[in-house]
Simulated assay, not measured.
Amino acid sequence: MSVSIYEVIEGKKCLATYILAVNDTINVINGKWKAPIISSLLFGKKRFKELERDIPKITSRMLSKELRDLEANGIVKRTVYDTIPVTVEYELTASGQAFEKVLDVMLKWGLEHRETTLAAGK
């Protein structure tokens, strides 16, 4: 299902539904660390320490909290293996994988915005 802001403006889609969907997206990426975690997991399953190494300056406590939030939102799947010691892997769900499209748009906008802003400041 593809919905654009123009369809909402033209009355083809419900504004309340659009706002809820945007809020859902913001809730998923809310905070400093969720987008980097998702970005790291786009490259495949990772263990906790691998994620910690991939994301500079994140604390273990914050990584743990953010992974729980992402799991609660259906973005990350946590798998515990019955090994000694216990092995835990994190991976993106199908919804998490689809979030790559959002990150791509954010990247494109960020690069364009940075270029425009820096050019205006000169």
Rank of each mutant, 00 (worst) to 15 (best):
10 E>T: 01
11 G>K: 00
11 G>S: 01
11 G>C: 00
12 K>Q: 09
12 K>F: 01
12 K>C: 00
13 K>T: 01
14 C>Y: 01
15 L>G: 02
16 A>W: 00
17 T>W: 02
18 Y>D: 01
18 Y>W: 15
19 I>W: 00
19 I>A: 11
20 L>P: 02
20 L>W: 02
21 A>P: 00
22 V>G: 06
22 V>F: 03
23 N>P: 01
23 N>S: 13
24 D>Y: 07
24 D>N: 14
24 D>M: 04
26 I>Q: 11
26 I>K: 13
26 I>M: 08
27 N>R: 15
28 V>R: 08
28 V>H: 04
29 I>F: 14
30 N>L: 08
31 G>H: 11
31 G>I: 07
32 K>C: 03
33 W>R: 08
33 W>N: 13
35 A>L: 15
35 A>D: 10
35 A>K: 15
35 A>H: 05
35 A>N: 09
36 P>Q: 09
36 P>G: 08
36 P>C: 08
37 I>M: 04
37 I>Y: 03
37 I>G: 09
37 I>K: 05
38 I>V: 15
38 I>G: 06
38 I>P: 08
39 S>I: 06
39 S>G: 14
39 S>F: 13
39 S>M: 11
40 S>H: 06
40 S>C: 11
40 S>G: 10
40 S>P: 09
40 S>T: 15
41 L>N: 05
41 L>D: 03
43 F>C: 07
43 F>D: 12
43 F>I: 03
45 K>Y: 04
45 K>V: 07
46 K>R: 14
46 K>L: 07
46 K>Y: 04
46 K>C: 10
46 K>E: 04
47 R>Q: 12
47 R>F: 02
48 F>Y: 12
48 F>P: 09
48 F>L: 05
48 F>V: 10
49 K>I: 15
